[in-house]
């Protein structure tokens, strides 16, 4: 069983970008069963920018599933943005999931935007001022909803889709000081609470592609500035041509901070 997943995040669309992705997107039906968008679809989260996203990523012959990013929240027009995307046939996840019938089996995707907080041993705590507690509880709620959504899906293969990162591995390249604003270990913990096959995120524009959760789930940062192509394609499954299999030991161990 092999499911073919295309993914990109942080396309930050506005009028000046419309049309740039389209030629590559037209090739999707030949190489992927689904396209995942890992948030930051827009620059400021306006309805007008969402229409640019709908124009660029709507009407493709593969299903498109997305979460929103922090940029998509900037102008407080989330309901309008979601409506424009949904009207274009794009599935927007936030604390829920969807199951798609693919040629290789039923693909379950659970998604949340996620939030910051940092990683084990170097993270914010639910303690002190109300502002601090609100910050940490936002992440906890988000991670709880991701975990529940992942565990609720009846499918053959499970994928987690977030904007913020669930692991520090894929942030390598970002300044260490801003890690707490780029993700949270709690998202990783949620991903590890279910038999997740792959976790996809964006947000870390200067990060790196590959990582692994403490529970061994592969994590991929698909932020557009990181992958430097219209989308990445992953073939996930257990019957692969062994010649093409990349060695598993390579994932998540390289840390070259600049």
């Amino acid at each position: 069983m092999v499911i073919r997943i295309a993914a990109v995040g942080d396309v930050h669309l506005d009028e000046d970008v419309v049309g740039r992705f389209r030629p590559a997107l037209e090739e999707l039906p030949e190489c992927a069963d689904v396209l995942l968008l890992a948030g930051d679809l827009t620059r400021h989260g306006t309805e007008a920018e969402a229409r640019c996203v709908a124009e660029e990523f709507g009407g493709l012959s593969v299903p498109v599933v997305t979460v929103l990013g922090n940029h998509d929240h900037q102008c407080d027009q989330v309901p309008q943005v979601v409506k424009v995307l949904e009207d274009a046939g794009i599935t927007v996840l936030e604390g829920n999931g969807v199951v798609l019938d693919c040629a290789g089996g039923r693909l379950g995707i659970a998604g949340v935007k996620g939030f910051g907080g940092g990683f084990a041993g170097r993270c914010a705590s639910d303690f002190g001022e109300p502002e601090m507690k609100a910050f940490v509880r936002t992440t906890t709620d988000s991670a709880d909803r991701l975990g529940a959504a992942l565990r609720s899906l009846d499918c053959d293969m499970l994928v987690a889709l977030t904007h913020y990162s669930p692991v520090p591995d894929t942030l390598a390249g970002e300044p260490l000081e801003i890690y707490p604003f780029l993700g949270s270990y709690q998202l990783g913990q949620a991903i590890d609470s279910a038999p997740t096959a792959l976790a996809v995120h964006g947000h870390a524009h200067a990060g790196t592609e590959r990582g692994t959760t403490p529970g061994g789930v592969r994590v991929r940062n698909v932020a557009h500035p990181v992958i430097k192509q219209a989308y990445s394609v992953f073939h996930v499954g257990d019957q692969l041509d062994t010649d093409q299999v990349s060695p598993i030991g390579q994932s998540g161990s390289q840390r070259s901070w600049s």
Partner: peptide, 14 residues
């Protein structure tokens, strides 16, 4: 300016 061409390789995840 970030390139936006279709990928030339896929990643296999067994």
């Amino acid at each position: 300016v970030i390139r936006a061409q279709a990928p030339t390789e896929i990643e296999q995840l067994p």
